[in-house]
Amino acid sequence: MAFISSSTVLNSHSLLCSSLTQDLHGFSRNIATSNSIRESSQLQVWAAGGKSMPPRQGRGYNSRKAAAEGIRKRMSNRDLDQAGWVQVAEKGDLIEGKNKAIIHENNGYVMVQRGSLIYTVKANCTSCQFPMIDGKVEVVGEGDDLTIECPLCHTKFSMVDGDVKDFCPKDGALQWVIGTIKERASPVAANVYPTRMSNSGRIYVKFIGI
């Protein structure tokens, strides 16, 4: 019968423990490597702006506010998609009661604000071709009809539909001369253009009949 010494048993136990320890270390390294590869892949997807990108977070971040801001930007951009409307100014560019000169494709226009309404008319008077940027604007009656008067010949035009309200009135020396020259001419309506302001404060004009 063979006898196994205590030293042999201890040596075998030590070898077994050492082998298990090495296997555990190797397993841990494999898990760490796998996690590192997976995190690197996620970072690449996030950096590329993929669907796996986590939501923005941090101090002061408000998800509702961010969502509302996104909606507002999309709504503002819709204005640019509507055919025929051209942005010409911002809300802060207009002062009520003061004429605003607008240039679009080498053509001049006069823009006037009255309350929530904005009017745009071709700048040159159809009677004498003089620029009306400094033309006097008046409210007609109780309605929203405005007239603009040519500074040279004093012809008045409606800023709503362009109709001639007073054609070469001869109410001054120079106006008398122009009126005499224009006696046989027919009044020509001014060109007016639909104008509106978006919720974001952008002012658009639909230039038609140029």
Rank of each mutant, 00 (worst) to 15 (best):
K156M: 06
F157M: 04
R184I: 08
A173Q: 11
K182N: 15
N191A: 10
Y193K: 01
D171M: 05
F207N: 03
V177F: 14
K165V: 11
Q175I: 11
G201V: 03
F157I: 05
A185R: 12
V192Y: 05
R196P: 00
G201D: 00
P169I: 05
V164H: 01
M197F: 03
G179Y: 10
P194R: 09
C168M: 13
N199L: 08
G179P: 08
G172N: 08
S158C: 09
A173L: 15
E149T: 14
G172K: 13
G201S: 00
D166T: 14
D166A: 14
A190W: 03
G162N: 02
W176E: 15
V160W: 06
I148D: 02
P194S: 10
Q175F: 06
F167K: 07
D163I: 14
V188S: 12
I203M: 03
S198A: 07
K206H: 06
P187A: 15
T147Q: 10
K170V: 09
Y204K: 08
K182H: 13
T147I: 14
A190R: 14
E183Y: 09
G162W: 07
C153L: 09
I148Q: 09
D171G: 12
V164I: 09
P194E: 05
P194F: 11
M159Y: 00
G179I: 08
F207D: 00
Y193Q: 04
Y204G: 02
P194Y: 02
E183D: 14
D171P: 07
Y193D: 01
I181T: 07
K182M: 15
V192N: 05
Y204I: 01
P187D: 03
M159E: 00
K170W: 04
Y193W: 01
A189F: 10
K206Q: 09
E183C: 11
S158I: 04
T155W: 11
Y193L: 04
K165Y: 02
G179H: 09
N191L: 11
A189N: 14
V188Q: 15
G201Q: 08
C153R: 00
T180P: 01
N199K: 13
E149R: 11
T195I: 00
F207C: 04
M159A: 04
A185P: 01
L152S: 12
A189Y: 05
R202K: 13
V205S: 04
K165E: 07
G179R: 06
I203S: 00
P169T: 10
G172Y: 06
K206W: 04
C150H: 02
V160Y: 09
P187F: 11
I181N: 10
E183F: 10
S158H: 06
D171V: 05
Q175A: 14
C168F: 10
M197V: 04
T155A: 08
S200M: 10
A190K: 05
A189L: 05
P187L: 13
T195N: 00
M197Y: 00
A185L: 10
A185K: 14
F157G: 03
P187H: 13
V164T: 10
I178S: 04
D171R: 12
D163M: 13
K156E: 07
C150K: 02
D171E: 14
A190C: 01
F207K: 05
I208C: 10
K182Y: 03
C153W: 07
R196L: 08
K156F: 02
R196F: 07
R184K: 15
G162S: 07
D166H: 12
L174P: 00
N199E: 13
K206T: 05
V188T: 12
